[in-house]
Amino acid sequence: MSLTRRLIVCLDVQAGRVVKGTGFVGLRDVGDPVELAERYEREGADELVFLDITATHEERATLFELARRTAERLFIPLTIGGGIRTVEDIGLALRAGADKVAVNSAGVRDPSIFTAGAERFGTQCVVASIDAKREGTGWRVYTAGGRTATALDAVAWAREVVARGAGEILLTSIDRDGARDGYDLELTRAIVHAVSVPVIASGGAGNASHVCDAILAGEADAALVAGILHDGVTSIAALKGAMRDATIPVRQVAA
């Protein structure tokens, strides 16, 4: 026996509400984060991620308050990200109720945040969030919610964040995000093979076979889903059932 593969539900939040868009634009309100979080835990989600997609300084207090309200009612791991700028922010997010903190743009600006965060709080709470877009034969890293191109190659960057202390990688394909035509399996596999920490595949889930592909062909440790659940296209039970049928080890939830 060993680790099961995880199904992680992402809630994009803005001003305390869950929203969902396509390719980082065109947002729609899809519900109350705490209610959705509780519902997804009951249904068998293995983890939750709150990503504050506005990520402004003013929004951060709202995000931390939301983390606090959620943590008091949630008994599965909660990752929060968006607008984390300093190692002090990581500490505040953890104190507020996060179990893990995702760092994206701030890590590109100054990668020492991964090292400082890991030393202070442990490598298992520091998640490097990488947004990558296909370009030629590789993938370029973007920041600021997919708006700003960097000079970084995604595979090399993944190696660097892990060397600096990140304990997990949340890998989002900008090309696939919200498109529901499947994860970027080649990108996922390239990152999984480059690092020794768990990799969460994100961006592109449209149905259960996409999720299974992310694990089996993409070799991801976890698959992140959002819109297809919030819109009622499928359910956690259906996704986990399909994973089980594909002989992927998953956590069973008692009925």
Binding site: M1, P77, E168, P198
Partner: peptide, 29 residues
Amino acid sequence: QLPQIGWNTLDDVTDVDLRAAKLETAYYA
């Protein structure tokens, strides 16, 4: 692969409370 992050199975469980709680897969980090 480290850290170990995720849900792992428990085996050879003799702890009475773990057994009574039916805690068979637990979250590790």
